[in-house]
Design a protein around this nucleic acid. Sequence first.
DNA 1: TTATGCTAGTTACTTTATGTAAGTAATTAT
DNA 2: ATAATTACTTACATAAAGTAACTAGCATAA
Lengths: 104, 104
Amino acid sequence: MNQALICPRFEKAMSIMSQRWTGLVIYQLLTGPKRFCTLESSMGISGRVLSERLKDLEQQGIVKREVYPETPVRIEYSLTDQGMALEPVLREIEKWSQEWLPAE
Amino acid sequence: MNQALICPRFEKAMSIMSQRWTGLVIYQLLTGPKRFCTLESSMGISGRVLSERLKDLEQQGIVKREVYPETPVRIEYSLTDQGMALEPVLREIEKWSQEWLPAE
DNA sequence: TTATGCTAGTTACTTTATGTAAGTAATTAT
DNA sequence: ATAATTACTTACATAAAGTAACTAGCATAA
């Protein structure tokens, strides 16, 4: 009955990364700040969920939201250092997909 | 309107890894073959979903299912080479969680 | 021989998460 | 005054996940 316990920090990380869309949002932000509508149209995510994810990621300290009061207003989402630190994770997924998944 | 397209293989990999529980199941199998009931009780996953995930992962070629007709029957799930190749992904998530998430 | 237990699931039903489409608010262009 | 743009939100529908009870096959216990 003795189970090897899973480290709570790792479990937390997995719960973040295994939410639908989260990984792709971070991946898109690796190449620089992006606006809401850019993210929305570049992946197939709905505005409802994108808005939810960005709020979560901001609260978690992974994403930063910045408002530029131009006209029309420009709001940019970018990665914090904590968010940037996820790059190796995404790169490893990228590598795996190239090696093991069929093209096309 | 010109969007950088996301590589379909990467998208596929993300859709696998961002399903709830998938990462944790693979993580548990990194330490060797496990039975259904062991997986079920070591993570908080429900039998219904575990059964679904294992079937998916088997079909994807990530997990292998082996039946030992003992009594009671023993069925073991383990990682294929393709599945083992995901280890670096999980290790990077582990590293990130240790560096960036608060203990406790 | 009926009952109990074990493993590996499945089934029916409930709750939660996500998708869809329309709407809002602020601002500028026509 | 109307339309357009950005960044959302809201109400409602569908899909995914959780819960708890159930099944099947076999073995041991009462």
